[in-house]
Simulated scan of single mutants.
Amino acid sequence: YIQSIVQFSQAPGEVELVSARHPEIKSPADFKGATLGVTGLGSSTDFLSQYLAVRNGLKPGDYTLLPVGAGNTFIAAVKQDQIQAGMTTEPTIAQLLKTGEANVLVDMRTPEKTKEALGGPYPAASFYVQSAWLEDHKDEAQKLANAFVMTMKFIATHSAEEIADKMPKDYYAGNRDLYVQGLASGKAMFTPDGRMPADGPPTVLKVLSTFSKSLQGKQIDLSKTYTTAFVDAAK
Score class of each variant (00 low, 15 high):
4 S>M: 01
4 S>H: 12
5 I>L: 08
5 I>R: 04
6 V>F: 10
8 F>W: 04
11 A>C: 10
11 A>D: 09
15 V>W: 11
15 V>R: 07
15 V>G: 12
18 V>H: 02
22 H>G: 09
23 P>D: 15
26 K>C: 09
26 K>P: 04
27 S>F: 11
31 F>S: 03
33 G>L: 15
34 A>M: 15
35 T>V: 15
35 T>P: 05
35 T>W: 12
36 L>I: 12
37 G>M: 07
38 V>D: 09
43 S>L: 11
48 L>S: 09
49 S>C: 15
50 Q>L: 08
51 Y>E: 01
52 L>E: 00
52 L>W: 07
54 V>D: 05
56 N>V: 11
56 N>D: 12
56 N>T: 02
57 G>C: 00
57 G>V: 11
58 L>Q: 06
58 L>G: 12
59 K>L: 01
64 T>L: 03
65 L>C: 05
66 L>A: 02
69 G>P: 11
71 G>D: 00
71 G>I: 02
74 F>H: 10
74 F>M: 14
75 I>Q: 14
81 D>E: 14
83 I>C: 00
85 A>S: 15
89 T>A: 07
90 E>S: 11
92 T>I: 08
93 I>H: 03
95 Q>K: 15
98 K>T: 05
99 T>N: 14
103 N>Y: 03
107 D>Y: 08
107 D>W: 07
108 M>Q: 13
108 M>R: 13
109 R>D: 03
110 T>N: 04
110 T>M: 05
111 P>W: 06
116 E>I: 11
116 E>Y: 08
121 P>T: 07
126 S>H: 09
132 A>D: 13
133 W>R: 02
134 L>R: 13
134 L>K: 06
136 D>G: 06
136 D>E: 06
142 Q>Y: 02
142 Q>H: 07
142 Q>W: 00
142 Q>D: 01
143 K>N: 03
143 K>D: 00
144 L>K: 04
145 A>T: 04
145 A>Y: 00
147 A>E: 02
148 F>M: 05
150 M>S: 11
153 K>P: 07
153 K>W: 12
154 F>Y: 12
155 I>A: 04
157 T>S: 13
160 A>H: 08
161 E>R: 13
162 E>N: 09
165 D>H: 12
167 M>K: 09
167 M>N: 07
168 P>G: 11
169 K>H: 08
178 L>D: 03
181 Q>K: 14
182 G>E: 03
185 S>R: 15
185 S>Q: 15
187 K>T: 04
188 A>Y: 05
189 M>S: 15
193 D>Y: 14
194 G>H: 06
196 M>A: 07
199 D>P: 06
200 G>N: 00
202 P>S: 10
203 T>S: 14
203 T>G: 13
204 V>P: 05
205 L>H: 03
206 K>M: 13
207 V>K: 05
207 V>I: 10
211 F>G: 07
214 S>L: 02
215 L>Y: 08
215 L>S: 10
215 L>Q: 12
216 Q>G: 01
218 K>H: 06
218 K>N: 11
222 L>Y: 13
223 S>T: 14
231 V>H: 01
232 D>K: 07
233 A>S: 07
